[in-house]
Lab assay of single mutants.
Amino acid sequence: QIFVKTLTGKTITLEVEPSDTIENVKAKIQDKEGIPPDQQRLIFAGKQLEDGRTLSDYNIQKESTLHLVL
């Protein structure tokens, strides 16, 4: 699982696999929060994550925290 922290300070927990794409993660966030993926920007280690890449591409491991910017 990974954590996604929103600007409001809320933390969302997501069940993911390293092979999941960023697009996939955004879809999971939409399921939980109702935020359309095209409004979501995910930041990890100061980098904006691209939809077509996977979590493992960015070396995002379990218990990692991503930041969600709208």
Rank of each mutant, 00 (worst) to 15 (best):
48 Q>N: 11
67 H>Q: 12
41 R>P: 01
32 K>E: 07
3 F>C: 05
41 R>L: 14
58 Y>Q: 04
19 S>K: 08
63 E>R: 07
28 K>F: 06
60 I>M: 03
23 E>F: 13
69 V>E: 15
10 K>Y: 15
26 K>G: 01
65 T>P: 03
47 K>I: 15
19 S>F: 12
27 A>D: 08
26 K>P: 00
20 D>F: 06
13 T>I: 14
29 I>D: 00
21 T>G: 03
1 Q>V: 13
44 F>H: 07
69 V>G: 06
10 K>W: 10
28 K>P: 00
22 I>K: 00
51 D>C: 05
28 K>S: 04
21 T>F: 07
45 A>T: 05
44 F>Y: 13
4 V>I: 13
44 F>V: 03
62 K>M: 15
5 K>F: 07
31 D>V: 13
2 I>G: 01
66 L>W: 02
48 Q>A: 11
63 E>T: 06
68 L>S: 02
8 T>M: 11
10 K>G: 08
35 I>A: 04
53 R>G: 07
60 I>A: 02
26 K>I: 03
10 K>M: 11
14 L>W: 01
70 L>R: 08
13 T>F: 08
57 D>E: 11
15 E>A: 11
56 S>G: 11
3 F>L: 06
65 T>H: 10
49 L>D: 00
26 K>D: 00
24 N>M: 13
60 I>P: 01
64 S>C: 09
24 N>V: 11
1 Q>F: 14
24 N>R: 13
30 Q>M: 14
37 P>M: 15
69 V>L: 14
1 Q>M: 11
59 N>M: 07
19 S>P: 03
37 P>F: 14
61 Q>R: 11
27 A>C: 12
45 A>Q: 15
36 P>N: 08
41 R>M: 15
56 S>H: 10
55 L>S: 01
7 L>G: 14
15 E>S: 14
8 T>F: 11
4 V>Y: 02
66 L>F: 04
24 N>F: 11
67 H>K: 07
26 K>V: 02
1 Q>A: 09
15 E>R: 10
37 P>I: 15
43 I>R: 05
65 T>G: 03
1 Q>E: 07
21 T>N: 05
22 I>F: 03
23 E>P: 03
29 I>P: 00
4 V>G: 01
39 Q>K: 11
58 Y>R: 01
55 L>G: 00
14 L>A: 02
10 K>R: 10
52 G>K: 10
40 Q>F: 15
5 K>C: 10
53 R>T: 06
